[in-house]
């Protein structure tokens, strides 16, 4: 069995600051890490392969910076890493990312299952997984919170807003997973120290038959500013305060 697990190398948003005066987004202190839901995807693939035997290929696409993720991802139980690094993928949108991932998945070939996180911690568009499945022409099941595999039949419990749905599909297929699906492992010392001995293959766009220009985002970003919520800071005092509050709330359309 060959499982591909996809991951995104994102900035840790907890360390991103917004300058109060200019609203400029300050990324200097933020470090890259594997997007949290993708850690669930990796864990899901590794556990399935552990039960059924076979290999787990970690796959990602991005700029050259992505190379720094190799030891981290390879310490999490996967068999090997394949990644595409090209500058055109800087600020890639879900369409470009899916196109690049699809070409890489075809190059890896013979996959039975592809596991993605439900969304990335930076943009959380929830599009990359379904787009990738469409490009590869395989079924996709999103919002997976539990899975079980019986031969080539995959049963998925989907967590939806109004309840659960159990669905079945045959392999090859793609699933996107929610964090409920598992508790990702903490890599041990030996796994970390052994990571550099595992194979890591870097593809170029040419290797995958891709025109790098087609990977660029379709939309153009003119600026990036942090959001700022301006509070009214209205303080009501004295006897008529409650009535006055009610009037204001009505004016604002809250009641």
């Amino acid at each position: 069995m060959k499982i591909i697990v996809c991951y995104k190398w994102t900035l840790d948003e907890a360390d991103i600051r917004v300058d109060a005066a200019t609203r400029a987004v300050l990324k200097e202190r933020a470090k890259y890490r594997i997007s949290p839901y993708d850690r669930n995807a990796v864990e899901c693939g590794v556990r399935l392969a552990g039960k059924s035997g076979g290999e787990v290929v970690a796959l990602s696409v991005g700029t050259a910076e992505l190379g720094n993720s190799a030891k981290d991802i390879l310490s999490r139980g996967v068999t090997r890493l394949a990644w595409l690094g090209c500058q055109e993928l800087e600020d890639a949108d879900a369409a470009g990312t899916a196109r690049a991932l699809a070409a890489a998945a075809r190059k890896i070939g013979d996959y039975d299952l592809i596991v993605c996180g439900e969304g990335s911690s930076d943009s959380y568009s929830q599009q990359t997984g379904p787009r990738l499945a469409e490009l590869l022409d395989i079924p996709v099941v999103t919002c997976a919170s539990e899975i079980s595999l019986d031969g080539s039949r995959l049963t998925v419990k989907r967590k939806l807003e109004e309840g659960f749905e159990i669905t079945e599909t045959t392999l090859p297929a793609l699933i996107t997973v929610l964090p409920d699906i598992n508790e990702p492992r903490i890599p041990g010392l030996k796994e970390i120290l052994g990571a550099s001995k595992k194979p890591a293959e870097r593809f170029s766009a040419e290797d995958l038959g891709l025109d790098p220009e087609t990977l660029k985002p379709l939309a153009r970003r003119d600026s990036l500013l942090g959001t700022a919520t301006d509070r009214r800071r209205i303080v009501l005092k004295g006897e008529g305060a409650a009535a006055e509050l009610l009037t204001i709330l009505k004016q604002e359309g809250f009641c």
Binding site: N68, K71, D72, S75, I186, P187, G188, L189, I192, L193, A195, S196
Partner: peptide
Amino acid sequence: QEEQLIIQSVRE
């Protein structure tokens, strides 16, 4: 880098 990853795991 390995040592940084080890510290990350230890912290977790």
